[in-house]
Amino acid sequence: MSILIITEHDNQSLKPVTLSLVTAAQQIGGDIDLLVAGENAQPAAEAAASIAGVRKVIHADNAAYAHQLAENVSKLVVELAEGYTHILAPGTTTGKNLAPRVAALLGVNQLSDIIAVEAADTFKRPIYAGNAIATVKSADAVKVITVRGTAFDAAEASGGSATVEACDSVHQHADVSFVGEELAKSDRPELTAASVVISGGRGMGNGENFDMLNKVADKLGAAVGASRAAVDAGFVPNDMQVGQTGKMVAPELYIAVGISGAIQHLAGMKDSKIIVAINKDEEAPIFQVADYGLVADLFEAVPELESRL
């Protein structure tokens, strides 16, 4: 068997989720190759080559791949697909944008957001907001899979010495172009990779009040997340939404502040190791999944929490 992993990177650096994909690939078994498609992505390709257990890195560098548009990268992947039994992409917005396109071009269905490898053709994946776990088996010759990063440990980022092979094939769809992007700038860890996450909900009242959470986050080295209600209300940007239709997180410690605990929110955080809930309503469903629940007004509890840490 041989596995092609589509890496997650921003040209300069490789995103940690790539390491989780390598672990998933090791559980499937077989040779592991990585694709780095980007522009001026030499640093990302080098980082990929040093991951332990990787056979080869395919590095396609061209302006057409600068923003990893699915129209272009999907055709590159299909061209490279020959000989691979599995193609793995991360369950990130980039991976979810791309992988189904690859699957459709290869004429196969995709296995989305797997959380466990049962056998080389059998996988577990959550459905219905994580309220059921399906075991699915694919009979397709090539399996196109997206992987939930938080479900697999990170492989060793160093120790490998894979060869880097340049690929100069260019695919450029004429009818799509990149206009711009607004990326959130933060010195805090990435939500999906952080070991501590503190999230705020509608109970925060407004965006300024998130500063209270930021202060706690700074003490704990945590990332800050939010419920959909907090994003919809404009308190914080969309990239902070945790949940079924936002980001999936599974940190060592998750602190939910002023969040009621709707099933869509729980879907995104209930695999966290320790859950803390701070809510003034003792009936709030979040307490049913919390290891430690504190019934309190968050405007008193959060500043006190910060001062005691």
């Binding site: 196969v108 309220n131 399906a134 699915v136 088996k137 694919s138 397709d140 307490f287 629940g293």
Partner: peptide
């Protein structure tokens, strides 16, 4: 191409 073998409930969290 994809066959559903089984469905199971998720691991329940212990009450805190």
């Amino acid at each position: 191409g994809v066959e559903l073998l089984s469905v199971e409930p998720p691991a329940e969290r212990q009450a805190g």
